[in-house]
Design a binder for these strands. Structure first.
Lengths: 189, 189
DNA sequence: CATCCTTATGTATGTATTTACATAATTGCT
DNA sequence: AGCAATTATGTAAATACATACATAAGGATG
């Protein structure tokens, strides 16, 4: 039972899902490929944490839909009582930022401009998602879904995503504003 | 040559360092254990990217100090021209947040309170660091180290750390403010 | 009808990362 | 003198994760 396993169980508390769906939905929180998900689901089924039902489809290939079982709920509740381990962030841009002074400003400008675009695109996706959550929860612009509704979790997470994303955009813009123009200012050792 | 290798080279552009020092310093940007660092440094030396000197110490155990070589600089400059890969964030708290409605508010409150403390402690460390960088760069409160100084990179990274950390604190406080009091409001299925 | 894209599930192999094992010198504490 | 903590370097083994291989049904496009 690693963190990914608990992540899958967490998603399954909202609704039964196929391995394929789980793979898509867990990406924003805990990136993982289907090659990790499928064997893990089989193991969770063996442990009795989830059950599996084969769903025949006519328009698309058949699928296996997993549902969380009482044993899975127990494991989840137990897991929720232990403090979350520290978040792990690995950002290549931070390593590159460390030595930008060794290259031309035009080179580093590209680096941060690309990242800025990345975050702007992400912001758009997040805003769409938060809209759809609000609709599902029947909540207005400023309304917060109640704690005991299934929308509370997704809502606070999406808000974190939004806030952090905006901060990152702000940072990228700031960095771009202080990188000198042209190629004249590159470092001389 | 994986990302960690380039990260080590990046750090070595500032000053020669031992494997032990590198292990400490790379943590904030690319967490890695010494068991990954030491073999990698040996490989970088074999490739001629870094050189190694044995430093005898009287007060502490002897150490190996690595310096970046021209071949390492070349690799770094090449690496800086390709766009940074997307950042990877894995946060167990986000997975737990997804299903908080299934447990008592007191349980989830502990989760976010602990994370808030984590970020507050981190904020303090970051503020100390940014102070010391400002001193080393002989820069005032609002002054920005010049692009071609070695302090530009660390300065922008520390600022990102600060900004994101503050946003996270704000988010934790907000979440704690909307989690209902007591154990009365737990979810009923 | 050929080709590509999406949905769907799996395995095999390689790489990255963590945990544990192993050793050793120095300092500070009791 | 014994013990723990810090500094310092390494290897071994296990786990996590990514890339590639493999198959297949259905839909869209040409």
């Amino acid at each position: 039972m690693n963190t990914l396993a608990y992540g899958l169980l967490s998603l399954l508390t909202h609704s039964p899902l196929s391995g394929y769906d789980l793979t898509q939905r867990i990406q924003p929180f805990w990136p993982a490929k289907h090659s990790q998900i499928y064997p893990l689901l089989a193991r969770l089924e063996k442990y009795g944490m989830v059950s599996c039902e084969l769903i025949q489809q006519s328009d698309k290939p058949d699928k296996k839909v997993y549902s969380i079982q009482e044993k899975g709920f127990e494991a989840l509740r137990e897991w929720l009582t232990v403090p979350a381990s520290d978040p792990v962030m690995r950002d290549e841009l931070m390593l590159k930022a460390f030595c930008v002074s060794h290259v031309d400003p035009t080179v580093s400008r590209d680096l941060f401009a690309a990242r800025l675009e990345h975050y702007r695109a992400k912001l758009g996706r997040l805003q769409d998602k938060i809209q759809s959550v609000r609709q599902m929860a029947n909540a207005g612009e400023t309304e917060i879904p109640p704690y005991n509704s299934l929308f509370f979790g997704p809502y606070i997470m999406l808000n974190k995503g939004l806030m952090v994303c905006r901060t990152n955009i702000e940072w990228c813009e700031w960095v771009l504003s202080i990188i000198p123009d042209g190629a004249a200012a590159s470092r001389e050792d």
